[in-house]
Amino acid sequence: MKIGVALRSCVVVSALFAVMQGEVSARSEFQVFSQANSGRGVDCAMCHAHPNGPEGLKPGQIGSLNAQELKLLGLARTAFEPGSSVENPILNDFGNRIVFELGKRTFLELRAQPELLGSLLSADSDLDHDGIPDATEFLQGTHPLSSQHGAPGALFLHNLGEQWFPIVMLAVATALGLYGLRHLLIWFSILTDQWSAESSSSEGD
């Protein structure tokens, strides 16, 4: 059996288990769009607290919520207008931010045009402080809440700007270290040559 077949059988078995557990992840329109637009794999963890989505009994899923969290969930479900500070326990910070910026009504309407989500979200919001706006991360299929995840080029340039001081310090330290090492090795080389010359002359005597 080839690797691809083995992998596919893993997927089938995993999916079967997921169905048995009643945890089929809802591949929302937004998730499908982000994945197609970026060519990167995306799952519910972009906006939800659990990567398998809201349905289920695991932490961050509806079945695991206590009374207090269920109350918050109820409040969040009525946040139809923008500007409502909600802390929906089944959403992560990015999910809650979307509801805060757009309101639930607009968000639900966007399901027909998920490509508009990126342009409607504020370009200033960067929840993970990685220099890439959350809206861009949505379009690029990277995680808006992980500073370790983003488009490699943009991430590199942003971090380079942020970390210039330690880099300059390291360059100076490396240059000084190499300068010292060079002189140490040359000194040691001269010394060993002298010892060799002395020992061969004493052997000659």
């Binding site: 997927v11 995993s14 999916a15 997921a18 794999g41 995306v42 963890a45 990567p51 992980s146 370790q148």
Partner: peptide, 17 residues
């Protein structure tokens, strides 16, 4: 950053691959 982030989620034997 070069990989899709779901690949780095904790392994879940009962979840989808």
């Amino acid at each position: 950053a070069f990989f899709a982030y779901p690949l780095f989620a904790p392994y879940d034997a009962l979840g989808s691959t």
